[in-house]
Simulated assay, not measured.
Amino acid sequence: MKIVIAPDSFKGSATAQQAADAIEVGVKRVFPEVEIEKVPMADGGEGTVQSLVDATGGKFRDVTVLGPLGQETTARYGLLGDSKTAVIEMAAASGIQFVDEHTKNPLITTTYGTGQLMLDALHHGSQQLILGIGGSATTDGGAGMAEALGVKFLDINNHPIPRGGGGLSELDHIDLSGIDPLVAKAQIRIASDVTNPLTGKIGSAAIFGPQKGATPDMISILDANLKHYAKVIQRDVGRNIDQTPGSGAAGGLGAGLLAFTNANLERGVEIVLEMTHLKQRVTGADIVFTGEGGIDFQTQYGKTPMGTAQAVKEIDSNITVVALAGNVGEGIDQLYDLGIDAVFGILPGVEALPVAIEQVRENLARTAENVMRLWGRKR
């Protein structure tokens, strides 16, 4: 018998690798000699760097960069086992965790640090960059990122404009002459499931601005500034990115990447499936365990358990896919028609959140053990 264990992280309590290790413990309580393949997974969001580094035998690199408010901070990215690919979570440098209720302000926050991470990876030999672009504190259209790569955003007096979404109103022209030559040579893959355009009623400022501290007045200013930014990009760079699906991701970082690099937008889970070679590794499997902290009706929209299940079923529809979750929410019935055969909550009863977090590995092990005991009785 062969079992593949391919969970996402259980956020706040276990990395994808730790979750996989815990499930393995439970499986081996019942079948100690079973063949097990562990494949830590992610969907492009938080935990993607950790999962891909673990899955490919890679390593981490820490870099001093500027945070969203311009303060120096240390950010980490991953160098994968192929020695040619870097995986970066923009939140590591420009994430919402760097601001609080008193300091969050998308008029001034910048993605400059994300560009610094990209540049560091390129200068250390990476030929491909995978960028997870969720969890941002910014609405600067990726201008800060591009500035770090060497793009100049200048006002009518040929002076650099202020960083942040507010400074875009002063933009007169864009100078690409200083962009690092390695940028054009790199393959850049944007891991994001966001399809919002840069501007408009469902654009970056309108939909995501409030969670970053934007008031209604700020949203109007930011949307107008991003519209102006897009027009200058179209004139000076020759790329029309305003209404491109996904250009509004991460406060418009998607737009900046599409405008100033040779980036492509892709579903995060599809990139992870490719990089971990999951489809090849599930060949011949009897059961695949997947899962994450919460499973509900949203799981079908590009989340790790669904992406994993669909990839498995493409290889062999007879492989049983079992999803484990800390919390099982509404609307899971439809998942059974999309590739997941069974969903199990791992909590033994009503538990306070701190207790559930502390005991997540034992809960995963116990649930996996019970699944395997049932499986053993069927055989």
Rank of each mutant, 00 (worst) to 15 (best):
I36Q: 01
I23P: 00
P32K: 13
E24D: 14
Q18C: 00
V30L: 04
T56C: 11
V39T: 08
F60W: 15
G12A: 06
G58Y: 08
R29S: 06
V49D: 03
A42Q: 05
A19P: 00
T15G: 08
G45Y: 14
G44R: 12
G58R: 07
R29L: 01
V63R: 01
G45P: 13
A42H: 07
T48E: 06
V63N: 00
A55E: 04
V34W: 02
S51A: 15
G57W: 13
K28M: 05
M41S: 12
G58T: 11
T15D: 02
Q17G: 11
Q50I: 12
V39I: 15
A22N: 05
T48C: 06
V30G: 05
M41F: 12
E46N: 13
G44W: 11
E46Y: 07
G45H: 11
R29E: 14
R29C: 05
R61N: 07
A16Q: 08
G26T: 00
G12V: 05
A22M: 04
V30Q: 01
F31G: 00
T15A: 01
V25F: 02
A55L: 09
V53E: 10
K28P: 02
G45A: 13
E46H: 08
G45M: 12
R61F: 05
G47P: 07
E37L: 12
E33L: 13
A14I: 05
V39D: 01
K28E: 04
G57C: 12
V63W: 00
T56D: 10
Q17L: 15
A16K: 02
V53N: 08
A20G: 15
V25I: 14
